[in-house]
Computed example of a mutant assay.
Amino acid sequence: MELVASSAHRLKSPAFDPSGSLFCTCSTTGTLFAVNGASLEAFLETNGGPCGLAFDPTTGDAFLCDGEKQSVQKIDKDPNTGAPVVVDFIHQFEGRSLSGPQRLCFLPNGELLFTDGSALGEASPTHTGGSVYRTVQRRQQLLRLAGGLAGPSGVAVDAQTGFVYVTETPLNRVLRFVPRPEGHYVSSVWHSLQGSLGPVDVTVHPLTGDVYVAKYDVAEASPHGSVVVIGRNGEEKGVITVPTPHISGLAVSPSGEDLFIIVEVDDDSVVSKIYRFPL
């Protein structure tokens, strides 16, 4: 495992744009960073608390989950200056405000998918007000894919099968949604984990379909963190050991050659590190 970069920010949600460049967010300062070698360059100040980031694979447009503003946002261009600006994209469902969008990704058909629930530390197994939403009709409408969830956090899609994976942090499990005709999905508890505070993020290998699940924990329980590798059939294939249990984001490179892992050094510091693990 190789250390790529270190930053005095609470980094989250690594994401690749269509050109293969890596970006990440800081939910405390509201900054969107571009990872350039061993350095991080501030790309945009969102004036919010972005905790999720994804790029449209066809247009390159960037979308953010902002739990602080309770909305999904899009990065657009100022019509006068051409500078990047943040605009509100989705902030309610059926007339009600969103709870706190956490992570997002794109379905193979180009629709947007995102989790909406409480952040880590606020969610609990008995608080089942979380949801997963997806856009339809070229993102003009919003549908609830699932409701009644406890702290849904990470979300990822297997581009080959269309399977959707969602981490339900307080219940320490991963849900799977299998697409069926006419836009319907069949859901189930796909994998239950043991130990840790729960899984906080998930990503899928673009070629093999292997699922990588980040387990978050406290240092008093374990000095190391772990990313569980699970095959499409739900069977564990291995565990990647991480230097700290405070994992805050995962992303597989577009080529499938590397897994990028963001961790926070400890509970008290604001130092984050980005690691690269060859696959």
Rank of each mutant, 00 (worst) to 15 (best):
G238K: 11
V155A: 06
L175C: 09
T161S: 15
V136F: 07
P152E: 04
T126Y: 11
G151N: 07
Y216W: 15
R176Y: 01
V213C: 09
V228H: 02
S196R: 04
L145Y: 06
V204P: 02
V228L: 12
P181Y: 01
F177C: 01
P245H: 02
V200C: 15
T161H: 01
P243A: 02
V242W: 04
Q137K: 13
G130P: 07
V229Y: 09
L207E: 15
G129M: 02
E168D: 01
E168A: 05
G162D: 11
G147W: 04
P243V: 06
H127R: 13
Q194E: 15
G121N: 13
E236D: 09
W190I: 09
I230P: 05
Q137S: 14
V164L: 05
R232I: 12
G198I: 01
T169C: 14
V229W: 08
L149T: 06
R180C: 04
G130W: 00
V213F: 08
I230W: 02
T135H: 10
V166F: 07
Q140A: 12
T135V: 11
P170D: 06
H205R: 06
T241K: 14
V178H: 09
A146Y: 03
T135M: 10
A159R: 14
T167C: 11
G162R: 10
S153L: 12
P243S: 07
A214T: 00
V229D: 03
L193D: 06
T161L: 05
N172T: 01
G154T: 00
P245I: 03
L142N: 03
Y133S: 05
V186G: 04
G151P: 08
G183A: 04
Q194A: 14
G183H: 07
G195P: 01
T161G: 05
L171E: 10
Y216S: 00
L193Q: 11
Y216D: 00
T169R: 13
L143G: 02
A159G: 10
Y216M: 06
R176I: 05
G231I: 09
V157P: 09
Y212E: 06
R134N: 09
E122I: 02
G231L: 10
W190R: 13
S131V: 09
L207V: 14
Y165D: 06
L171H: 04
T244Y: 04
Q160K: 15
D210S: 14
I240K: 10
I247V: 11
E235W: 07
V174K: 02
T135R: 08
H184P: 00
V157D: 04
L193C: 12
D210A: 15
P223A: 13
L145I: 06
G225C: 05
